[in-house]
Simulated assay, not measured.
Amino acid sequence: MAGEIPDLEAQVRTGTGKGAARQARRDGMVPGIVFGGDADPLPINIPFNKLLTMLRKGRFKATLFNLKVDGHDDVRVICRDVQRHVVKDLPTHVDLMRLKRSTKINLFIGVEVEGEEESPGLKKGGVLTLVRPEVELVVTAADIPESITVDVSGLEIGDSATISNVKLPEGAKPVIDRDFVIAQVSAPSGLASQDDEDEDEDVAADEVPTSEMGPPDGEQDSDE
Score class of each variant (00 low, 15 high):
P133E: 08
E134T: 06
E134F: 11
V135I: 15
V135S: 03
E136Y: 07
E136C: 07
V139P: 00
V139D: 12
T140Y: 12
T140P: 01
A141R: 07
A142C: 09
D143Y: 11
I144L: 04
S147G: 03
S147V: 05
S147K: 15
I148T: 07
T149P: 07
T149I: 15
T149W: 05
V150G: 09
V150Y: 12
V152P: 06
S153R: 12
G154L: 03
G154R: 12
G154V: 07
L155C: 10
L155R: 05
L155Y: 08
E156G: 10
I157F: 07
G158P: 08
D159S: 14
S160Y: 10
S160P: 10
A161F: 04
A161D: 06
T162G: 04
T162K: 06
S164M: 02
S164W: 00
V166W: 06
V166Y: 09
K167H: 02
L168V: 07
L168K: 04
P169R: 07
E170A: 13
E170C: 08
E170F: 09
E170H: 11
G171W: 05
G171P: 04
A172E: 03
P174S: 13
D177K: 01
D177M: 01
D179E: 07
D179A: 05
D179I: 01
V181N: 01
Q184H: 14
Q184D: 08
Q184W: 04
V185L: 00
S186K: 12
A187I: 01
A187H: 09
P188S: 15
P188G: 14
S189R: 15
G190N: 12
G190K: 14
L191A: 15
L191W: 11
L191R: 15
A192G: 08
A192D: 13
S193R: 15
Q194W: 13
Q194N: 11
D195P: 00
D195Q: 11
D195K: 13
D196I: 10
D196A: 13
E197L: 13
D198K: 14
E199A: 15
D200P: 00
E201P: 02
D202G: 06
V203D: 10
A204F: 02
A205P: 00
A205Q: 09
D206K: 13
D206G: 09
E207C: 02
E207P: 00
V208E: 08
V208G: 01
P209M: 02
P209S: 06
S211E: 10
E212R: 03
E212Q: 10
